[in-house]
Design a protein around this nucleic acid. Structure first.
Lengths: 338, 338
DNA sequence: CTGAAAGCGCTTACAG
DNA sequence: CTGAAAGCGCTTACAG
């Protein structure tokens, strides 16, 4: 009975339940009181027929789709791993609030954004990996759709943004090391290319580390991580070699975190005996690294982004954006510093 | 002019162009001849008003959405990196054919599949990382929607499947090494967990390697890769130590491929002088590894999956599925074998 | 507590 | 070559 040739419509349900189509609609939406008897007959018919409302018809009548657009930058491979971590949490959060996710890659440029908003395919957008002067932003502002960015652009006028507070993260890390008595610290930032494409987290974390180090009176040696996976270990090794006086190492690069154990092993260095290590953990992978780290939880950030987006989508259309929310990071001590 | 309060409708375009709504529709779809003069007036009005057809209305009228569902398994973290590689190619292929992608994670079980098909949100589905007894398959068969699987299940009755031919891949690898005179070969397969969850490629590649090795009269030592990223190097090192007599190494595990250079470096082993190496390259990352490899191109596979799906979606609804297509792998010699 | 009917924005036979 | 009208499957004032 459930699977005839064609999908059941609300008219089929109405007929089976012996009521009008409007009553079926109200019974299902709960927007009007319905007698208990009617309600149960409708529910039964829905079950028997395997009825599911047609999404297109609903979108047309309600002027809302129940779909969130998730816009990923697809052009730079180095963003891929970081991006991946956000997809599952965002998807889960969206489902929990009753939304589906449309994947929008900017493969055909910022016009992809226009396409999905103007055709009414999505009610709102989450933009991932937003850079300081992100080329998608002009199209986004023009679209006038609710949107939440993950990643802090330079100009946040009229935008909703959530991100980790990398300035505070930097201060926590530097303060933590300073308190332990370290005076010379090596910093491995993301690759030069990541800065070049304007990734705000790279710029903010590095400059805040440098500023805080100055304040705290310690010396910081910043270096770029390798651009290619294959060179990560070599570069890391060379950096360590360059600063034999440094007693601590700060890593703001996933691959370097992963490559560090092998490099240290080869150089017969112990943590934290010979070197204190602090990482920046972006979640995902095989759980946290064995290092004291500032944990940047994509779960938390993605969930927040979706909840904020949904509240914007359901708010009055002329409501003001919430603005910028920078999540306070947590430093988790995993005994890799001394 | 482009951005009034509300989106322009086909009626607005008709009014501006001085024609009927049907004429606008036909002018845009090309399904009926339209005079050159009318055509240009319609086009102009479309441009001036920034008109885009409402997707929901179109879905309702046409009984098609222009959306493909991309179903990823979200439950096992180890599938994530492999899966990631497919998303961009599939998205690109879909866009090229005029389709958008709805992300469907089976976070709420196989019912997610029912939800998106029954509500008419998608015209068809691509299922990623299909296992031998994939729990999504019953729901898929019941849904009676066009679908293409990437990954070969045990029972392929009535299904469309594309995958790499791992049997042939195994034979190519073994034959290649046999021809070079190797007699003892170590094989690092994916982690035990990957087999446990029924990943067909792991089972097929290993068993075909073993079978072919027997035929070719060479000895094959199979080992599981580490389950956790952090242990990859250690496990690899231990495996090499276990078989000092092996003159060649076959890697069917991404992480092991990535970790190998460091391990060999530490043991002061040269490729191919001390050890011949053949990998299985799944694409993505930072380009191919420096090893002779069977290249499994997600680009090719994802593109094929989408094209096949689209051809099924546009075929007669009672057309037979194409069936199983196993892509012939290419072995790319990168001089890591001797 | 319920129903008949208009309307959301498209497409497409039907008629000319 | 073009238009008026029905229909896709919903929701929701309006009326009772």
């Amino acid at each position: 009975m459930a699977n005839g040739e064609e999908m059941a419509t609300i008219a089929d349900v109405a007929r089976a339940a012996g009521v009008s189509r409007s009553t079926v609609s109200y019974a299902l939406s709960g927007k009007r009181a319905v007698s208990p008897d009617t309600l149960s007959r409708v529910r039964r018919a829905v079950r028997d027929l395997g009825y599911t409302p047609h999404a297109g018809a609903q979108a047309l009548a309600l002027a809302r789709t129940g779909v969130i657009g998730l816009m990923l930058p697809v052009d730079h491979a180095d963003a891929a791993p970081a991006v991946t971590r956000y997809v599952a949490p965002i998807s889960a959060a969206a489902r929990r609030l009753g939304y589906d996710l449309l994947l929008v890659t900017d493969i055909d440029g910022p016009s992809a954004l226009r396409r999905v908003t103007e055709s009414g395919r999505v009610d709102g957008l989450v933009l991932l990996d937003v850079t300081q002067d992100d080329p998608r932003l002009p199209a986004l502002r023009a679209a006038e759709r609710p949107a939440v960015l993950i990643g802090l652009p330079r100009d946040v006028e009229g935008l909703d943004v959530v991100d980790l507070d990398f300035r505070v993260a930097a201060e926590m890390v530097v303060d933590h090391l300073a308190a332990l008595g370290h005076r010379r610290v090596t910093l491995v930032t993301p690759a030069r290319e990541v800065f070049a494409r304007g990734a705000g987290h790279a710029w903010r974390f590095r400059s805040s580390c440098l500023a805080r180090a100055r304040t705290r009176g310690l010396r910081l040696y910043p270096h770029f991580a390798a651009a290619r996976q294959a060179d990560t270990g070599h570069v890391l090794d060379a950096v360590l070699r360059t600063h034999p006086d440094a007693t601590a190492l700060v890593l703001h690069d996933d691959r370097s975190v992963a490559a560090l154990p092998a490099v240290l092993h080869e150089r017969a260095m112990r943590v934290p005996g010979d070197l204190s290590v602090v990482g920046l953990h972006r979640g995902g992978g095989d759980g946290p690294p064995p290092y004291t780290a500032v944990d940047a939880s994509p779960l938390e950030l993605g969930g927040l982004a979706v909840r904020r987006l949904v509240s914007r989508m359901t708010a009055a259309p002329d409501a003001e954006p919430v603005g910028v929310t920078l999540l306070r990071p947590h430093l988790t001590d995993r005994a890799s510093t001394a």
